[in-house]
Design a protein around this nucleic acid. Sequence first.
DNA 1: ATCCCGAGGG
DNA 2: CCCTCTGGAT
Length: 214
Amino acid sequence: MSDLLEAEYPEALCELDHRNPFELLAATILSAQCTDARVNMVTPALFAKYPDARSLASANPSEVEQIVRSTGFFQAKTKNLIAMAVGLVERFGGNVPTGLDDLVTLAGVGRKTGNVVCSVAFGLPGLPVDTHVGRLSRRLGLTTEDDPVKIELELNSHLPAASWGPFSLRLILHGRRVCDAKKPACDRCVLEHLCPSSILPSHRRTSPTPTRPI
DNA sequence: ATCCCGAGGG
DNA sequence: CCCTCTGGAT
């Protein structure tokens, strides 16, 4: 099925504009409950004023708030951005660490954001699990878990490490555009014939097909 | 109304 | 485990 999704979303890797790991990290923090397009509208001004961890660490919070306001949750995001930058300066020499264990010690960086940075910025194995990835994984019969960490490890075990990141984003794009939370559009889903959920009353499609390897 | 690649805090 | 944080697009 990963080949079907690859055909549907060929260049899935990241839709957040960035020129380096620091920019991707900041952009990903801003992306919570906000479209990538909206984030891409504010990051040019943000990075023009704060091009690196050191400048952001000493930023005036209200000036950062002004720039990132339209992405929503702007007070929490501003606090996290600055604290994240302070963490980079104080504990990582101003550089973005490459390991997930280090990344998640930074303010505003959870496992999902950490995995985005790992896989996109550093080309290291990382499978971000957000609500879309969790929902689609359950619908597709790839897991029965609810815990995002368990889902992440389960998906990891079925896929070559190099495709963890792209697979995650493909599930996310598919979750947004086709397999949404409330009313999945099974009638125009490329995975319909192999999706166990497509036979459920709530999805109500044609005929059953047993689960196959990803 | 509902959705947008969450994370921190009580 | 629940709550809160937020504005913009559709």
